[in-house]
Simulated assay, not measured.
Amino acid sequence: MSPLPAPPARTAPALPAGWVPHRFRGRLVTVDEPLRLGAGGRPAAEAVRFLRECQSHDLVVRWLPATDDPLFTGPAHEVAGTAGLLRHLPAPGPLPGEPAELTTWRERHAYGQLYHRRGPDFVTVMDRREPSAAARFTIDDPDLLAAFRTVQDPTAMAELDAVGREAVELLAAERLARVTDGWAVALPPRIRRWPVPCTDI
């Protein structure tokens, strides 16, 4: 009996370049500098996009928050709000004296808590960041769909027209986009692999 052929090699996915210096080794991504997710603006939006794309490919990510980041130093309710919004993303590594909310993020993080799938003229989103309030969305309104596609990349709100800004604000109200200091970025990763229970797709 001839041996089975070796499985095809898994090619490294293309991750956003430039704003988040990182190294790849197999499925492990190591971020070379602390991230400031709680600080807002374009750097935070770029960091969210980077982690979202890593989550999309189910990569293991090692990253630390900056010790002067509001995610680390801010009031408990703000830290809890940010950590709850971003809980679907790869969690930060531990730091001495970190807020309890960051520990909870690590403990509760799992692949598939928030994701989207694309159809020809719609996007479906599953949100299970809060198990007691799981929700499914279908985005098929042309303006909302266009806004969702636009903010896959970090986008300055000032660059959008009035319709686009209103659409992004609606996405943010549903916790599907994050807007801080005038910059917006979509939150749900695009699902690319299982296991996400087939009943949830």
Score class of each variant (00 low, 15 high):
residue 29 V to L: 11
residue 82 T to S: 09
residue 155 T to Y: 00
residue 121 D to H: 12
residue 121 D to I: 03
residue 119 G to P: 07
residue 63 W to G: 08
residue 46 E to K: 03
residue 170 L to V: 01
residue 34 P to A: 08
residue 111 Y to T: 11
residue 55 Q to H: 15
residue 116 H to M: 15
residue 152 Q to A: 07
residue 114 L to A: 07
residue 81 G to P: 00
residue 35 L to Y: 03
residue 110 A to W: 06
residue 61 V to W: 10
residue 67 T to V: 15
residue 121 D to F: 07
residue 80 A to Y: 02
residue 80 A to C: 00
residue 84 G to S: 06
residue 166 E to S: 08
residue 162 A to T: 10
residue 47 A to N: 11
residue 124 T to G: 09
residue 158 A to F: 00
residue 32 D to E: 15
residue 80 A to N: 05
residue 135 A to K: 12
residue 150 T to E: 12
residue 29 V to Q: 09
residue 125 V to K: 04
residue 65 P to F: 09
residue 75 P to V: 12
residue 125 V to W: 02
residue 157 M to T: 02
residue 68 D to K: 11
residue 72 F to L: 10
residue 71 L to G: 06
residue 28 L to V: 14
residue 123 V to K: 06
residue 120 P to D: 03
residue 28 L to S: 13
residue 73 T to V: 14
residue 78 E to S: 06
residue 65 P to G: 10
residue 80 A to E: 07
residue 75 P to L: 10
residue 80 A to I: 01
residue 67 T to I: 12
residue 88 H to L: 04
residue 35 L to I: 13
residue 105 W to R: 06
residue 128 R to H: 06
residue 163 V to F: 01
residue 89 L to P: 04
residue 122 F to C: 13
residue 40 G to N: 05
residue 108 R to N: 12
residue 51 L to K: 01
residue 99 P to A: 09
residue 106 R to V: 08
residue 82 T to C: 07
residue 97 G to A: 04
residue 133 A to W: 01
residue 25 R to W: 06
residue 77 H to F: 03
residue 133 A to N: 03
residue 37 L to D: 10
residue 106 R to S: 13
residue 96 P to S: 04
residue 151 V to C: 01
residue 150 T to H: 04
residue 111 Y to I: 11
residue 68 D to L: 13
residue 124 T to D: 14
residue 102 L to A: 08
residue 87 R to P: 01
residue 31 V to A: 08
residue 143 D to H: 00
residue 31 V to T: 14
residue 126 M to Y: 14
residue 101 E to D: 10
residue 56 S to A: 15
residue 72 F to D: 04
residue 95 L to M: 05
residue 154 P to Y: 01
residue 25 R to A: 12
residue 55 Q to N: 15
residue 91 A to C: 07
residue 104 T to W: 02
residue 37 L to C: 13
residue 58 D to W: 15
residue 128 R to T: 05
residue 49 R to C: 12
residue 105 W to F: 08
residue 48 V to H: 09
residue 58 D to C: 15
residue 43 P to M: 13
residue 37 L to P: 09
residue 154 P to F: 01
residue 145 L to Y: 07
residue 40 G to T: 12
residue 41 G to F: 13
residue 125 V to S: 02
